[in-house]
């Protein structure tokens, strides 16, 4: 498996507090990597390192190397906007813009200058919504407001928005925690589809979701990456006792 993102010796501090300790991990291209662990273990912090979302937190300091292909993500010279063009993100709570469904998708390609004509833009909106498995449900109401959709539809709208600018990597931070089981299954099916063209890193509190959607799983605990292996290995026969205690629901 070709590596898409390669982190080496990553330390993250919030002020004095060290949130991540010497994390090294290889994120495989076009596969789904799940990050699991108890609250406060650092998994979301790590996810946010991958598109420099921690920049917006003043007291946050990131050390070490994170390479996206051959590009050093932590480099001061890096164009963060270009990075985020290639590393999209979907959050826990669906957060569509308070605009129409069409505008939600069209916004990214337009400001990134990816389209020349209205027709091209229409095409991107349609393919993005199709890839996000939302097209059939919204094609007759593209000019209604996006926040009027159901929770699951809003989340798929956010995924459609993320993929509209064709990022190579999609980060998902608990994308289903606010969704019902049907909407969750639709997102999981979507993740399966998207991994053919995108590298996906997903943070989830649901063990079974990590098991269902990912090929690799990393277990974080107290800022350390305790174990990182194939998802099958982690859930059938983890190599580390702490991993086993966590995934089987034992006192950790």
């Amino acid at each position: 498996m070709k590596s898409k993102i390669s982190a080496k010796g990553v330390n993250v501090y919030y002020g004095e507090k060290q949130a991540l300790k010497n994390i090294s991990i290889e994120i495989g291209e076009k596969e789904v990597t799940a990050l699991i662990g108890p609250s406060g273990c650092g998994k979301s912090t790590f996810l946010r390192c991958l598109n420099r979302m921690n920049d917006v937190i003043d007291i946050c300091r990131v050390e070490g190397s994170i390479k996206f292909d051959n590009l050093e993500i932590n480099s001061k010279e890096l164009d963060v906007v270009r990075l985020r063009e290639n590393v999209g993100m979907v959050f826990q709570k669906p957060n569509p813009f308070p605009k129409t469904i069409y505008e939600n998708i069209a916004y990214g390609p337009t400001i990134h200058g990816l389209v020349q004509s209205k027709q091209e833009l229409d095409e991107i909106v349609e393919t993005s919504l199709k890839k996000a498995a939302l097209w059939n449900e919204v094609k007759d109401r593209l000019h209604e407001i996006g926040t009027g959709l159901s929770g699951g539809q809003q989340q798929r709208l956010c995924i459609a928005r993320a993929i509209s600018i064709k990022p190579e990597v999609i980060l998902m931070d608990e994308p289903c925690s606010a969704l019902d089981p049907i909407a969750t299954a639709q997102i999981e099916e979507l993740i399966d589809e998207l991994k053919n063209e995108h590298t996906i890193v997903i943070v989830t509190h649901s063990m079974s979701q990590a098991a269902r959607v990912s090929q690799k799983t990393g277990f974080f605990h107290l800022g350390n990456l305790i174990e990182f292996d194939s998802t099958e290995k982690i859930f059938k026969n983890p190599g580390n006792q702490q991993t086993q205690d966590y995934i089987t629901g034992r006192f950790g």
């Binding site: 079974s208 098991a211 026969n237 089987t248």
Partner: peptide, 9 residues
Amino acid sequence: RQPMAIDLR
């Protein structure tokens, strides 16, 4: 219960 790891085995 959806047992995992040792519990699954």
